[in-house]
Design a protein around this nucleic acid. Structure first.
Ligand SMILES: [Mn+2]
Ligand SMILES: [Mn+2]
Ligand SMILES: [Zn+2]
Ligand SMILES: [Zn+2]
Lengths: 126, 126
DNA sequence: AATTATATGCGACTTAGTCGCAAAAAAGGA
DNA sequence: TCCTTTTTTGCGACTAAGTCGCATATAATT
């Protein structure tokens, strides 16, 4: 899916910076933080965050806060839940069926916090 | 439940600062941020956060990140999910039955992001 | 009481995210 | 195409959450 199309659909003006962010997010299979990608982007930090905010408002991306207090962004594709581990701080996409409904609410993302299988087993227990 | 008991059960040393934080959390019916309670606490900011980290590690409290990028803390009592609204930033405790299971994971908190009923109705739509 | 371990206050620091403003780039007409 | 208006960008300064080192204070242990 060309990033220009995505923006047009949401009524967001197509600019260099916006295409650049979306193209990076399209290549990522996991949510990424500003720190993760700041080397790969040419725009200013303020521009990055302004556009991230715009994308969030337009419901184009998810933002998932990890226990490391950083926000991880991902393109909204097929809806799925996320898991963040309190021990290793990993943010994980949960593809298997988690279905949550709440009468009268619009649900856009479900984030599950806890301890991941790997940390449960190894000596990384709290 | 006296706050000293809570700490002893988790093997955390009982100090003035820790009791103070827990006593505040016990009076709150909603998750609160550092900003919400900084006027009410007598300890230093570093001490507050060091203890919050300790409480998190011991699974004594939940930390819920809102869309306003602040973290809201609450005492773990009866397990329940949380909802944060992308429009009004409210953090809400969801007492009604949300049950999520994930094989081999320890689930400690479920955070649902989206748009709350009030924002859906009024003109606060995005 | 003396010793040891742990927690605290303070100040300096880091970093995510924000804001105002002037320059640049899009969009829209004439 | 040139001119005008609107929106976005870069830059620099700023805010606020959270962290860290270190000296002092407090709690636990002997
Ligand atoms: Mn995902
Ligand atoms: Mn709650
Ligand atoms: Zn883990
Ligand atoms: Zn709302």
């Amino acid at each position: 899916m060309p990033s220009g199309k995505l923006l047009e659909e949401k009524g967001i003006k197509v600019t260099q910076a916006r295409k650049e962010i979306l193209e990076i997010l399209e290549t990522c299979t996991q949510p990424v933080s500003y720190e993760n990608i700041k080397e790969s982007i040419s725009m200013d930090k303020a521009t990055f965050y302004r556009n991230i905010s715009k994308f969030e408002e337009s419901n184009l991306i998810n933002a998932i806060e990890s226990h490391d207090k950083k926000r991880y962004f991902e393109l909204k594709r097929k809806p799925h839940a996320h898991f963040t581990c309190r021990v290793c701080n990993q943010v994980e996409c949960i593809k298997s069926g988690i279905y949550v409904t709440l009468q009268n609410y619009d649900i856009e993302n479900v984030i599950i916090q806890g301890i991941c299988p790997s940390c449960k087993l190894t000596n990384r227990l709290p």
